[in-house]
């Protein structure tokens, strides 16, 4: 067993970076939301790894709360996207520029 905490942290950092890149580069609001979920998951990996290697419980409980908040956030966010689509008939980010002009 040579896997240390650093390997898990590196995985977490990579996953966070991929999600961050996706948020910046994608134009579809739904896919941007999926990338947001990826970033949340990256944080949970880091927290569970810290918790495991320290032999404490706090990180695990924190992940529990993160999952709860993520579920609520996805429900509200998708409802907002549906409402947005009803009014603007698009969910592409470059066309949602009402505040810009």
């Amino acid at each position: 067993m040579n896997i240390g905490i650093m390997d898990f942290l590196a995985t977490s950092a990579l996953l966070f970076a991929i999600g961050f890149f996706g948020i910046l580069v994608r134009r579809n609001t739904l896919v941007v939301y999926m990338c947001l979920e990826l970033m949340l998951n990256a944080v949970t990996i880091a927290l569970v790894a810290f918790s495991r290697y320290n032999g404490t419980m706090d990180g695990n409980v924190f992940v529990f709360f993160i999952i709860t908040v993520a579920a609520a956030e996805v429900a509200v966010g998708l409802a907002i996207i549906v409402a947005l689509f009803r009014r603007r008939h698009t969910i592409q980010l470059p066309q949602l520029n009402l505040l810009k002009h």
Binding site: M1, S51, N54, G55, M57, N60
Partner: peptide, 8 residues
């Protein structure tokens, strides 16, 4: 992983 207890 062997030295710490898996409380989770």
């Amino acid at each position: 992983l062997g030295t710490t207890e898996a409380v989770g």
